[in-house]
Amino acid sequence: MNEALVFYVLATFSIISAVMVVFSCAVNSVLFLIMVFISVSGLFLLLGAEFLAMMLLIIYAGAFAVLLLMLPLMLNIKETYQHTAVKCSAFGVTVGLLLFSCLAFVLKVKPQRLENDVSLAVANNVKALGEVLYTDYAYLFQLCGMVLFVAIVGVIMLMIRNGMEIKEHKIAGQIIRSADEIELKQLTDGEK
């Protein structure tokens, strides 16, 4: 009873936020996306996936969304083009409805139970996930690390272009003198 209530609250919350993400202006839509993240992480908790819930909350709603928030603020996006043509909206909604109805059809499929070799027998979700992640999926996990690493390198490579223009202070170049740059002159008394 309580579980159902919590689910409906969170689901309604996330649906409204999701719709608002699509239909509101730049900064607001990021804020609504954070709302979606929060409510989905609540759903994760409801499902018993504590680790994922915390991860979503901390990394996504906490850190990552701030980064997203930077984007419209930094780029100083004007609000002028926010009102899209009705035709486009109608088209988008049609596509969305079509996709949704297609996906909803999947509910009619009787899901076959797969032979699950990885079970939730361990009471602690984080522990269970860790045990699977570091044993069976160790290579994939490493691969994830590689993906992130490549992303970091890629971003740096994108940004380094500006670094080229930075003027450096070359001390060595200033100090060194070669023989032909120096000229010795005899000064007469009057010049002294």
């Binding site: 996330s14 649906i15 999701a18 719709v19 993400v21 699509v22 239909f23 979606v36 083009y81 899209t84 486009c88 909206s89 088209f91 988008g92 909604v93 049609t94 596509v95 969305g96 409805l97 996709l99 949704f100 996906l103 909803a104 999947v106």
Partner: peptide, 16 residues
């Protein structure tokens, strides 16, 4: 499914 469809139509609604 609803969230997915919303995201999909968001790409078109906000196509600018």
């Amino acid at each position: 499914a609803f969230l997915f469809a919303t995201g999909a139509c968001g790409v078109f609604i906000n196509h600018k």
